[in-house]
Design a protein around this nucleic acid. Structure first.
Lengths: 198, 198
DNA sequence: GGGCTACTATGACCGCTGTCATAGTCGGGT
DNA sequence: ACCCGACTATGACAGCGGTCATAGTAGCCC
């Protein structure tokens, strides 16, 4: 959330991600992004000669890297790392936001997928890369915890799928119920995967 | 998929759902819906005086009811119904579509949530209702299979969350991998819930 | 037939969007 | 002083969006 005082370019990418996750790609205007970033409108065509497509792709990319880095921070925060604990932490990031800031925003990668998967190939690819850059660290964390390598990837996919779906339901219902539910139900399954291996 | 030769009104709702799940709500135009439904443009304001908002809401509603009914049909197709089998069937509907028709479409309810949750309260509510009308039958089916009532709802939420998330990932990756993965990983957990109870 | 309702058919309007074109400013190098 | 690159600033444009207004047609009841 801290946007620091980075260059205007980075601020615009960040703002784009924020607006996209709130309103979707199509409903987010370029002028709006510039205004939100406090950047001059003219900078858009300067920094993003590829137009909206480029800006959206970079926003998706940014979101993917952010999610990946976030995983490492979660791991550092857990004194006894378990798969279920990691998942609970991932979910808690969202319940915290929804409880303090309201249900305004979803996942920008999900928004890009829904809005652009069919129409804009490059954005679809960016979304796939973002998911990959998120699943990777999660899977790596699972193997570090003792989950067999061949299952770590699958469980990481399951975790992120369940999380994304629960985000959708939570936003629709304006209730974190779905999020807490998937965390509670999936936790034991995830922890069992390390016990089996040990 | 069989649209039969229902009235133009129903055809437009159906077409709206189809276009929304492909391109998102914002990118779907009213004129486009009419054209896709083979309906006259003038009928839009006749049948949907509430404008696009009403049309979208009805499309979401339709999708929710369709998903709910679909559950019953899945149950009828399974000779020995198990939670994991039901989930596998739900997932298979999507893998089948993606393998035969390509990754063009997602879930219209997810699209409506992403595009309208913040901007259009009534559509957000329609999406919540659609999720409820989908989760309900699934939970009921689980209790019929012997899952304790207090867990059936939670597992239904987990199933739909995982499915929705996997749909997103599958579309982004143009690969059914995520779908088959969640089906494989979640199946045993779901089946265990009935065994525990018995 | 007259009239009424349901539905269809267009055309126009206004707002907004992404993009282009053009020109301006600013700072540094030489 | 000069130039040049990076960046900013506007204005215009063409297209498309949803919506309104208005008029036309079809069928049915009395």
């Amino acid at each position: 959330m801290a946007q620091s005082v980075r260059g205007p370019r980075e601020r615009m990418v960040f703002s784009a991600a924020q607006l996209i996750r709130r309103d979707g790609v199509a409903a987010t205007g370029m002028r709006e992004v510039a205004a939100h970033a406090g950047a001059p409108r003219g900078s858009l065509q300067h920094y993003f000669p590829g137009g909206k497509e480029q800006l959206v792709n970079e926003a998706v990319d940014w979101a993917g890297r952010y999610a990946g880095k976030r995983v490492d921070r979660f791991l550092a925060a857990l004194d006894e790392p378990t798969p279920g604990g990691l998942f609970a932490e991932m979910v808690r990031q969202w319940t915290d936001e929804y409880e303090t800031a309201g249900f305004a925003g979803g996942c920008p990668v999900a928004a890009a997928t829904v809005d652009c998967a069919e129409s804009t190939a490059s954005t679809r690819a960016a979304a796939a890369a973002a998911f990959a850059g998120w699943t990777g660290p999660v899977a790596a964390a699972l193997t570090d915890m003792g989950v067999p390598e061949e299952r770590a990837g699958a469980l990481a996919t399951l975790m992120i799928s369940a999380l994304e779906g629960a985000i959708l339901m939570a936003r629709a219902e304006c209730d974190v119920r779905a999020l807490t539910t998937v965390a509670r139900e999936l936790g034991p399954l995830l922890d069992a995967a390390v016990r089996e291996a040990g």
